[in-house]
Amino acid sequence: MSHKQIYYSDKYDDEEFEYRHVMLPKDIAKLVPKTHLMSESEWRNLGVQQSQGWVHYMIHEPEPHILLFRRPLPKKPKK
């Protein structure tokens, strides 16, 4: 599979999560399941490479070739 064609967005966040999206080329996108969110082993098997802790959290129906990921931000110590 062509890992060079996978595009990784910059990371962005809110108060709770860090987010990123990953755009897959058409040949890989056709392998994305339409019935469920992928486990880490499933998206890694497609060639997506990112650190541990990312969760495929949403399917964007109009653009199924874009995978939406998030992971919890580290808890800030209370002052």
Rank of each mutant, 00 (worst) to 15 (best):
M1G: 14
H3E: 14
H3K: 12
H3Y: 14
K4T: 13
K4R: 11
K4G: 05
Q5F: 13
Q5P: 13
Q5K: 15
Q5V: 11
Y7Q: 07
Y8E: 01
K11G: 08
K11T: 14
Y12C: 09
D14H: 03
E15D: 15
E16S: 14
E16V: 14
F17L: 05
F17S: 05
F17G: 02
F17Q: 05
E18Q: 14
E18R: 05
Y19N: 01
Y19F: 06
Y19T: 02
Y19R: 02
R20G: 03
R20A: 02
H21T: 15
H21P: 02
M23P: 02
L24W: 01
P25L: 04
P25A: 04
P25Y: 01
D27G: 08
D27H: 12
D27C: 10
I28N: 02
I28C: 09
A29F: 07
K30Y: 09
L31V: 06
V32K: 00
V32H: 00
K34G: 08
K34A: 07
K34F: 01
T35D: 14
T35S: 12
H36A: 06
H36Y: 08
H36R: 14
L37N: 03
L37Y: 02
M38A: 03
S39N: 10
E40W: 02
E40D: 06
E40Q: 05
S41Y: 11
S41E: 14
S41G: 11
E42I: 00
E42A: 03
E42D: 02
E42Q: 11
W43F: 05
W43M: 04
R44F: 08
R44D: 04
R44H: 09
N45R: 13
G47M: 01
G47A: 03
V48D: 05
V48E: 01
Q49S: 12
Q49P: 01
Q49W: 01
S51E: 14
S51P: 09
Q52G: 12
Q52A: 14
V55F: 03
V55P: 01
V55D: 07
H56Q: 06
H56D: 02
H56T: 04
H56K: 00
Y57T: 01
Y57M: 04
Y57N: 01
Y57Q: 02
I59S: 11
I59H: 13
I59L: 13
I59W: 13
H60S: 09
H60E: 04
H60A: 08
E61Q: 11
E61L: 08
E63N: 14
E63M: 08
P64V: 03
H65S: 11
I66V: 12
L67W: 04
L67E: 02
F69S: 00
F69I: 07
R70N: 00
R70T: 02
R71S: 02
P72R: 10
P72V: 05
P72A: 09
L73A: 07
K76R: 13
K76S: 11
K76E: 13
K76I: 14
P77D: 12
P77L: 13
K79M: 10
K79F: 12
K79V: 14
K79L: 12
